[in-house]
């Protein structure tokens, strides 16, 4: 069940500034629904980012990352046109990924 993602990568000085938005409920497992039942935890556990296929950033997340997560990171030495890809997987095994080219500033 792939969820929509958005990505933007723009040169900022010598680095590519990458911003990612992910649609995901990020349920903590502590919230109760209208009937008072605990909503099971459902959250992204790992996010990985590559530049031209090379790993640059990987993150491990807990349920404390906000719903519809935002992630920003920077990669030095990137050039306009380079390919940035970001993918995630959650605690239920759902996953998604997105790719973009770095834009000149």
């Amino acid at each position: 069940m792939a969820q929509p993602m958005k990505i933007r990568a723009t040169m900022q000085g010598e680095s590519a500034d990458v911003k990612v938005l992910i649609s995901h409920p990020m349920e903590t497992g502590q919230r109760r629904n209208e009937r008072g039942e605990l909503v099971p935890a459902h959250f992204i556990t790992q996010v990985t980012a590559t530049l031209n296929g090379k790993a640059v950033m990987s993150a491990q997340w807990s349920q404390a990352i906000s719903r519809n997560p935002f992630l920003g990171f920077k990669v030095k030495g990137a050039r306009p046109g380079d390919k940035v890809a970001v993918s995630w997987v959650d605690n239920k095994g759902d996953k998604s990924s997105i790719e973009t080219a770095v834009a000149a500033s």
Binding site: A49, L51, K54, M57, S58, A59, F73, V75
Partner: peptide
């Protein structure tokens, strides 16, 4: 967050 290959 873990960084490699030029990530700040």
């Amino acid at each position: 967050f873990e960084f490699a290959n030029g990530a700040e």
